[in-house]
Design a protein around this nucleic acid. Structure first.
Length: 1158
RNA sequence: UGACCUGUAGCUCAAUGGUGAGAGCAGGAACCUUAUACGUUCAAGGUUAAGAGUUCAAAUCUCUUCAGGUCAACCA
């Protein structure tokens, strides 16, 4: 084995990664990383199964990076982290993909292609891109077990789903009901929301809309309305009072069972006339919509006229004599304004929606068929979904034909009427409308719109207030192009609402990152939970394990394949069915096979499986259990967790619930919900303790990535070009994982250059000199107190970093952790420690100071690579191995097998870190002052002046004085203490503490301080308290409440940062000029050395010409110059043979450098 | 339409309610380097999406509006 640290030729992340990947493969590094933690506390991780039906994208890389880094981190923290992969293989996208490929539609299934063939195609399609997924998984460095993944279409998986469903069934949590779903009568099928979201399904159509008049029944509830239309003592002469409700689907009116108002919406009762018959009436509608039906002003209707009198007679006095009818002239006038829909009106009452709750009305279109409603119908209901944007603010409610209607109808128990059959036509027993299609579903040439006829009938019967064509957007079946109906369809539900409180309570124990998703989006979702509709009418998926007799009287829920076998055999015996031919060893639980199995009921009747498949979300939500499959012995025992256990696991509690899961935020109501629901319902437990939901990956302009826009980022290309580590680092540190991120390749380049480049260079620097000196960490570690201050400082910073990184990682804040590491590597390690210590590595002998430098830098590098290992698994492992190969400090083949660094508090010295910060700030200020005066750093200056505010500050500065002096090239540092009247001081309140104390007086105090004189500041400093007078009240101001800083040192060049002030003496004496020249000359000659390609150790001879004015400098600093440039001689000559022309402080000279023996 | 998230410099992101809103990148100017694809310094860049409110004090809390996003829905 070589005893030299490996030096890279250049930083090439992709090639390093390939090398490491090969090494991992050869050494089984992933498996080993779990083995080394055998017997440790498990950290349970669930892999949300991707669908291998599509290509992996960059957004998959971010969530998998997140999962991977947490798992790697926890492994390094000493947990055993098993990671079983999985594939989601059912679902509509797969069916649609197959249909597209075969050029068929759903209708062709069972006709052009058998269900058997179709499902076979789906089975082949689902893992189509598995190779690509495996490839990206490997290349991005995602450690997950792909050898034994769970696959949702496998029998063992489906069987576990059945078992779970049966648990729910037995608890009475699985039931059959109706739900209102989009339905296409023309195609005879329900439509999924996905199908409804196809482009072009929503079309603008003109429909006949009607504002129908529902006649109120006079009773206790409605009495206040009836009283309001008649305030005469004679009582009411006209009791026609109506609720107005609007519909764009008049065909739903025969199925009307309720009217829904908004509880807090203002309604008015208006006296007016029927716009079609002119008959006086009173109507109720939302106040906000009054002027949609009634003009604010009517021209023809002027005060004093006969018509005015006549109308007022009714509107205001409730006279039973309707004068208009008695005068032909008035009648013509009146009909005129009515025809123009200029309805005279008067508001006689204003009230809230909740005031008319439970008022009753007469059925609008009563026929034989809708006599029995199955509930307490024809009431006014109240619900929040009502708005005053359209219509009348009262919603006609037909529970069969709207999801909201159904919901509110169920709440009030108004029953349900479905007066339209599945073909889209009215049922028998609806008089003239019987058997007519509600839309033109059969393409009848002379189709007469039944909606128009309904409206005509309403007009004739004085039950229409407004009938007009209304243009709106309405969904159409994407296959038949016909309008869909919302229609009640049978479906199976999981009664999640029964366990709602439990689910809400359990959710509060889950650690959500970010918190708001759990409380907000997820919390609200739980609060407004509805029962989970499991049914899907599709082909490729998990079948519902319920068999029913034809009459629907008896049903059976099957929980295992064994049970199915037993029941099937029983049926064969009792009914003579041929199930045994179907249930063979290669039984397939998919359609059509499972549908062919006939079971027998308790009373001996044949039972067929209900044709529904279940929602694929149940598949993935059940993965904590189904990924292991059922253990029959445990099922027989009635174990709580009858699942198989992988080798080395003794109890299911070591696999459940998950310690951590992570997916995109779009899974909140998807996977996160179904995991939570199933776990809560079956086990009353959470399914996961911590969940991180990451945001989307957008393109660099903030647009969603889509194939159509061509802005998708190919992760394969990104990784092969820039490396997985740079990509991962960028994805994690650019923004918090839960924020949407704008993905820009430039960002990866920057990470590569800035972070990895810097770390790489630091390593290279170390390797370069360590190889020269054969440093292999063989010496005992030098005790901290024997190391120089700068070493103690970087180690202190390092351990502060370790502490913070641990905290951030434990809090699932990898972004914070990554940024902290970046800052350390860049600001502290590379640009301060290494820069200031450079000479220690190449100057002098191999003894304590040098060894200390090597040890310190080594420790930093070794620690940093362990810190970055979770995020950047490849580069860290490469550097770790390069280091460890020489020193053998760890007996581990990979950084992923060692422990994560733990902070040693005893190494942390906050004072030291503070004063180094002070040194950096001071240097920065001096450099900035030099810049202002255009004095280069190589020109030595005499001194700087630092006003110190207290003794602590002075002590701190004194300890780093030498450092500052070398860094900024000045000869001395002078301190000005507080009692110095020479400095001009500034006073500023500390708002944070003082504000809390003073409250409202804060402003006045701040103003007073702004006007403080130097004398006042001095007094405060001396007495430590100053009594201010604010609004004639004494306000004591303490020294601790303010920040006093020096603002200016009169006569000096001054710069400030915070409370630090530095003054620089910019006088350059001839003495200083000489020294400056000498240093400048050294610099030029070093450059010549480098350009000439000399070795670091080559000795040289130097001759200078044209440098007479530098003679003084050279003679004074000759030994210094020679030492720096490794020259054995340095002479001034008249002319050089073939020298190089250089410029030393505006002076052109000629330099001849010759290598000794060269 | 609803729920939730986001909106800060040209770009990517910071800023326990505490008062001159900070970095990095890009672009401009200069400098430094026997590790450098580094760095240092300077200048420039902001109505913190808009408006109102609460508060002694708001980028931060509340409300409204606008824009982008996610999920759910689209109904009279």
């Amino acid at each position: 084995m070589s005893n030299k640290y490996r030096e890279f030729t250049q930083l090439n992340l992709p090639s390093i990664e390939q090398e490491i990947l090969a090494k991992w493969d050869a050494e089984q590094a992933f498996e080993k990383s779990i083995e080394v933690r055998e017997g440790a506390v498990p950290f349970v991780f669930y892999e949300g199964p991707p669908s291998a039906n599509g290509m992996p994208g960059i957004h998959h890389v971010i969530s998998r990076t997140l999962k991977d880094l947490v798992c790697r981190y926890k492994t390094m923290k000493g947990f055993k982290v098993s990671r079983k992969g999985g594939w989601d293989t059912h679902g509509l996208p797969i069916e649609l993909g197959v249909e597209k490929e075969l050029g068929i539609t759903k209708e062709d299934i069972g006709k052009k292609i058998t269900v058997e063939e179709y499902n076979q195609k789906c089975r082949e399609a689902v893992l189509r891109f598995k190779d690509k997924w495996d490839d990206i998984t490997k290349k991005m460095g995602y450690w997950v077990d792909l050898n034994d993944p769970y696959i949702t279409f496998k029998n063992e998986y489906i069987e576990t789903l059945w078992w779970l469903l049966k648990q729910l069934y037995n608890k009475g949590l699985l039931y059959e009901s109706v739900s209102i779903q989009p339905y296409s009568p023309a195609a005879g099928t329900g439509l999924s929301s996905h199908e409804l979201n196809q482009p072009g399904t929503y079309k603008d159509v003109k429909d006949t809309s009607a504002v129908a008049m529902f006649k109120a029944v006079r009773n206790e509830k409605s009495e206040f309305l009836f009283k309001a239309i008649s305030n005469t003592e004679q009582g009411i002469k006209n009791d026609e009072l109506f609720f107005l409700a609007w519909t764009t689907t008049p065909w739903t009116l025969p199925s009307n069972l309720g009217l829904t108002a908004g509880g807090d919406i203002d309604y008015v009762l208006v006296k007016t006339f029927n716009p079609y018959s002119g008959k006086p009436c009173a109507v109720v509608l939302a106040k906000a919509l009054l002027h949609k039906y009634f003009p604010a002003h009517i021209d023809e209707f002027e005060e004093g006229g006969d018509l005015y009198e006549a109308i007022n007679n009714w509107l205001n006095h409730d006279s039973d004599e309707f004068l208009i009818e008695k005068s032909a002239g008035l009648k013509i006038q009146f009909d005129g304004i009515i025809k123009k829909k200029q309805l005279p009106h008067k508001i006689v009452a204003t009230f809230k929606g909740k005031d008319i709750e439970e008022c009753r009305y007469e059925q609008l279109l009563a026929y034989e068929a809708n006599k029995e409603t199955g509930g307490d119908s024809f009431r006014v209901l109240v619900d929040a979904f009502v708005t005053t944007e359209d219509g009348t603010g009262i919603v006609h409610t037909a529970p069969a034909f709207g999801a909201d209607d159904f919901k509110v109808g169920k709440k009030y128990g108004i029953g349900i009427l479905t007066m339209v059959d599945r073909e889209g036509k009215f049922v028998d027993g609806l008089g003239e409308f019987s058997n007519r299609y509600v839309k033109n579903y059969k393409d009848e040439k002379d189709y007469v719109d039944v909606n128009v006829d309904i409206c005509v009938k309403l007009k004739k019967e004085n039950r229409a207030f407004k009938v007009e064509k209304y243009e709106h957007s309405y969904p159409h079946c994407w296959r038949t192009d016909k309008p869909i109906l919302y229609y009640p369809l049978d479906a199976w539900f999981i009664k999640t609402t029964a366990l709602k409180d439990k689910m809400v309570e359990l959710n509060k124990t889950i650690n959500w990152k970010p918190k708001s998703t759990g409380e907000g989006r997820f919390g609200n979702w739980l609060e407004n939970m509805v029962d989970w509709n499991l049914s899907r009418s599709r082909f490729w998926g998990t079948g519902l394990p319920i068999w029913k007799t034809e009459d629907g009287e008896e049903e059976k829920c099957i929980g295992t394949i064994d049970e199915l076998r037993t029941e099937a055999a029983k049926a064969d015996k009792e009914l003579g069915t041929h199930n045994s031919q179907l249930i063979t060893h290669n039984l397939d639980l998919h359609k059509p096979y499972v549908d062919d199995i006939i079971l027998v009921s308790a009373t001996g009747k044949p039972m067929k499986r209900v044709p529904d498949l279940i929602d694929v979300w149940f598949d993935s939500g059940a993965m904590p259990y189904a990924q292991w499959g059922l253990d029959y012995d445990k099922v027989k025992n009635g174990d709580k967790y009858p699942f198989k256990l992988p080798a080395g696991v003794e109890k299911f509690e070591d696999l459940y619930p998950a310690s951590f899961i992570a997916e995109g935020v779009d899974q909140t109501r998807g996977w996160f919900y179904t995991l939570h629901a199933i776990s809560s319902l079956v086990y009353e437990s959470v399914a996961y303790k911590t969940v991180v939901s990451n945001g989307l990956v957008l393109d660099k302009n903030g647009n969603k990535m889509s194939k159509r826009l061509g802005n998708v980022v190919d992760p394969f290309h990104t990784i092969s070009t820039y490396g997985a580590d740079a990509t991962r680092w960028y994805l994690i540190t650019n923004a918090s994982p839960w924020d949407n991120m704008k993905f820009d390749i430039e960002g990866i380049k920057e990470v590569q250059r800035k972070f990895f480049g810097t770390l790489y260079n630091t390593y290279q620097f170390f390797a370069l000199y360590a190889n020269v000196d054969d440093f292999a960490f063989k010496e005992a570690a030098i005790p901290l107190n024997e190391r120089p201050e700068i070493d103690r400082w970087i180690l202190s910073s390092l351990h502060t970093l370790i502490k913070k990184v641990n905290e951030s990682m434990d809090d699932y804040e990898p972004t914070q952790a990554g940024r902290l590491i970046e800052e350390f590597v860049d600001e502290h390690l590379s640009n301060w420690y290494v820069r200031l210590c450079r000479r220690r590595f190449w100057k002098g002998d191999y003894e304590q100071d040098k060894i200390s430098a090597y040890q310190t830098l080594y420790e930093c590098l070794e620690t940093v690579v362990r810190l970055i290992a979770p995020v950047s698994p490849f580069f860290s492992d490469a550097v770790f191995n390069n280091l460890n190969a020489i020193t053998q400090r760890f007996h581990a083949a990979s950084v992923h097998h060692v422990d994560f660094p733990a902070a040693d508090e005893s190494l942390i010295d906050t004072d030291l870190e503070e004063r180094m910060q002070l040194a950096q700030d001071t240097s920065s200020l001096v450099l900035s002052l030099r810049k202002k005066q255009n004095i280069k750093v190589r020109q030595p200056l005499q001194k700087i002046l630092i006003p110190v505010l207290n003794t602590h500050m002075k002590e701190q500065l004194q300890l780093i004085e030498d450092l500052i002096k070398t860094e900024v090239n000045v000869k001395e540092v002078e301190y000005l203490t507080a009692d110095n009247s020479f400095i001009k001081k500034k006073i500023k309140p500390i708002f944070q503490t003082l504000g809390k104390k003073l409250g409202a007086k804060m402003k006045a105090v701040a103003a007073a301080l702004g006007n403080f004189t130097q004398e006042q500041i001095a007094e405060l400093e001396k007495e430590t308290v100053y009594n201010l007078l604010i609004d004639n009240e004494p306000v004591p101001l303490y020294l601790t409440d303010v920040e006093i800083s020096s603002e200016d040192v009169p006569g000096w060049l001054v710069a400030n940062k915070g409370s630090l002030t530095v003054a620089l003496d910019v006088t350059i004496t001839p003495q200083l000029v000489n020294e400056g020249n000498a240093r400048e000359l050294v610099n030029r000659i070093q450059k010549i050395r480098k350009d000439s390609g000399f070795e670091l150790t080559d000795r040289i001879d130097v001759q200078l010409s044209g440098a007479d004015t530098l003679a003084a400098s050279i003679s004074e600093y000759k030994s210094y110059i020679c030492a720096e440039i490794l020259a054995d001689s340095l002479e001034l000559v008249q002319e050089t043979a073939n020298g190089t022309e250089v410029e030393v402080n505006d002076l052109l000279i000629n330099v001849q450098v010759s290598k000794k023996g060269g």
